[in-house]
C-alpha cells in the first residue's frame, strides 16, 4: 500500500489542469514507475497525486499536416518502439526507449513521464535532444510548444508551472527527414539498468555519402541535464567520412560534456566512455545511412 495523501483521478486534460490548480501541491502521476518508487522510498510519502494515467486522449502517435511526428505524452515506451510511424521514420527513438529498464517497465513507462521527471539519465531524453524535439504543454491558458532544450531547466526541474500538463512531444519534419540515427546506451548491465552514459547521434550525409552534411549529438548523464555536444557537432559538419573525422569527433566530445564524480561512476571514467561511445555511435549512425565503416 502506498502512502498517498489524496488521489485525484483526472477524467480529461482539462479536468487534470483544474485538479492541479485546485491542489497546487499535488504531483502528477502518469505511469507511476518513478513517482510510486519515490513514494515508497519516503521522498514523496504522503503527497497528493493527480492521476492522468487513464487519459487515453494523451496516447498515440500521429503525423501532422506539416509532417511532424506527434507523440502523445502517455504513449508507453513499448508502443513507441512497435509503432509503424516510428519504425519507418524515427527508428532511433524506438531503439532508445526499447532500452529503458525491462519489458514490463516499457509497458508502463511513458515518454512524458520520462522527460517530465527531469533526470539526465532518461533514455528517451538524449535522443529527443538530438532530434530538436518540441514539447507541447497544456495549461490553464491553453497550449504552448517549446524546444526541449528550454523544457529542461536543471536536474529534476522542467518548465512546467502549476496547472501545466505535458501533453505531447513533437518531432519536426526537418529534424528527421534525411537523417539517420543511433542510440548507444552505456550501462553496467544489458537490461534492467539506468544509463551510466547515453549517447544519441543523428547524421545527414551528402548525396554521394562521403561527407557528413549535418550531425546532431546529445548525451545523457554527461551533465545535470541532457545536453547537446555542439563543439563536436561543428567539427564534423562538412567533414569527410573517415577515421580521422571519427577521432576528432571523439576528442571534441570532451569540450562539451561535463559529467560528475558520483558513486555510480567517476568523472574520468565517464569522460573516457563518453569519447568511446560517441565514436561508436557516430560510426553506427553512418553505417545506418548506408556507408560501410570498420566497426
Amino acid at each position: 500500500m502506498y502512502d498517498i495523501g489524496n488521489l485525484y483521478e483526472a477524467t480529461s486534460i482539462k479536468n487534470a489542469i483544474d485538479l492541479l490548480c485546485e491542489h497546487p501541491k499535488a504531483h502528477i502521476i502518469a505511469g507511476g514507475s518513478d513517482v510510486l518508487v519515490q513514494m515508497r522510498e519516503g521522498k514523496l510519502a504522503g503527497v497528493d497525486l493527480v492521476s492522468i494515467y487513464k487519459l487515453d486522449e494523451m496516447r498515440g502517435i500521429t503525423i501532422t499536416d506539416d509532417k511532424s511526428i506527434r507523440i502523445g505524452s502517455l504513449t508507453s515506451f513499448s508502443h513507441i518502439t512497435h509503432n509503424k510511424i516510428i519504425e519507418e521514420n524515427l527508428y532511433v527513438l524506438g531503439e532508445a526507449v526499447d532500452q529503458v529498464g525491462g519489458p514490463q517497465v516499457r509497458n508502463i513507462g511513458t515518454i512524458g513521464g520520462n522527460t517530465c521527471n527531469g533526470v539526465t539519465s532518461a533514455d528517451s531524453a538524449s535522443t529527443l535532444f538530438a532530434l530538436d524535439a518540441m514539447i507541447e504543454i497544456t495549461g490553464k491558458n491553453g497550449v504552448r510548444t517549446i524546444p526541449i532544450s528550454e523544457f529542461y531547466i536543471s536536474a529534476g526541474k522542467v518548465a512546467l508551472e502549476v496547472g501545466d500538463v505535458q501533453t505531447a512531444i513533437i518531432i519536426p519534419h526537418k529534424s528527421y527527414d534525411g537523417y539517420s540515427g543511433y542510440y548507444l546506451k552505456y550501462a553496467m548491465r544489458n537490461a534492467m539498468d539506468i544509463s551510466t552514459l547515453g549517447c544519441s547521434v543523428n547524421v545527414k550525409l551528402s548525396a554521394d555519402k562521403t561527407i557528413i552534411e549535418d550531425a546532431r549529438i546529445a548525451f545523457g548523464v554527461a551533465g545535470p541535464i541532457p545536453l547537446r555536444a555542439k563543439t563536436a557537432e561543428k567539427r564534423v559538419k562538412s567533414a569527410p567520412i573517415n577515421e580521422q573525422t571519427f577521432d576528432t569527433f571523439a576528442e571534441s566530445i570532451l569540450e562539451d560534456i561535463n559529467p560528475r564524480d558520483s558513486w555510480r561512476a567517476t568523472k574520468a571514467f565517464r569522460c573516457h566512455i563518453g569519447k568511446s561511445i560517441a565514436k561508436r555511435a557516430l560510426e553506427k549512425a553512418i553505417q545506418r545511412a548506408g556507408v560501410e565503416t570498420h566497426v
Binding site: L7, G32, L36, V37, V105, N107
Partner: peptide, 9 residues
C-alpha cells in the same frame, strides 16, 4: 500486456 503489478495502482 505484462506489467509489474507492484507499481500499478
Amino acid at each position: 500486456e505484462a506489467y509489474n503489478s507492484c507499481i500499478y495502482l
